[in-house]
């Protein structure tokens, strides 16, 4: 019981703070809870299938296969695959982090995970079509044209900046997290 309270401690603190906001400013507090409710609805819709897909990936796709396609030495194929998987995704960026975690566990190269995250964040195909419609082709295409090299540059810079030990520790932590 105390373990549960400890895990949800921050959540409870924020909840109390939001309660105080509500007492101070009824309208703002009501709006905040209403928005939170809306986000929960969105999350309930998008997040469960992502986790089910992750579970299936975890059970059915052997580590060796993932390493071959997206691991060290997968070369351009791995980068392209990371890009396509990220772009085909649905849902907000925070849905991509658990996927990245399973990728680490399956031995996907770190820079490819970063490419995947970059693509998920900003070159999602449904979102691009929406952007095209809302903001016009000139805006959307310019952004896409700079985002593709940008995602690669960010991924490779980040992978080069971080010491190998930090990356190894992170991979180990994610492995334990998924096994516990």
């Amino acid at each position: 019981m105390s373990k549960i309270i400890k895990r949800y401690r921050v959540f409870l603190i924020v909840l109390v703070l939001l309660g105080i906001v509500f007492l101070v400013d009824r309208e703002l507090g009501r709006l905040a809870f209403q928005n939170a409710g809306y986000t929960i609805k969105e999350m309930l819709l998008i997040i469960p299938p992502i986790f089910v897909l992750l579970g299936l990936l975890d059970v059915w796709v052997p580590r060796e296969t993932m390493v071959r396609f997206m691991g060290e030495g997968s070369g351009a194929k791995g980068v392209l695959l990371a890009f396509l998987l990220g772009s085909a995704a649905a849902g907000p960026l925070y849905g991509a982090f658990p996927v990245a975690s399973v990728f680490m566990r399956k031995g996907v190269k770190f820079s490819n995970i970063l490419v995947f995250l970059g693509a998920w964040s900003t070159t999602k195909i449904p979102m691009f079509l929406f952007e095209l419609e809302s903001l016009g082709p000139r805006f959307a295409l310019t952004r896409l044209a700079i985002n593709i090299p940008g995602i690669l540059i960010i991924a490779w810079t980040l992978a080069a900046m971080v010491p190998k030990k930090t990356i190894d520790d992170m991979y180990r932590k994610n492995l334990e997290m998924n096994n516990s």
């Binding site: 959540f11 703002l28 809870f33 209403q34 939170a36 986000t39």
Partner: peptide
């Protein structure tokens, strides 16, 4: 859950 509450407040 923490993120959801914070997002709710920010959007408000």
């Amino acid at each position: 859950l923490v993120v959801i509450l914070l997002v709710g407040l920010l959007l408000a």
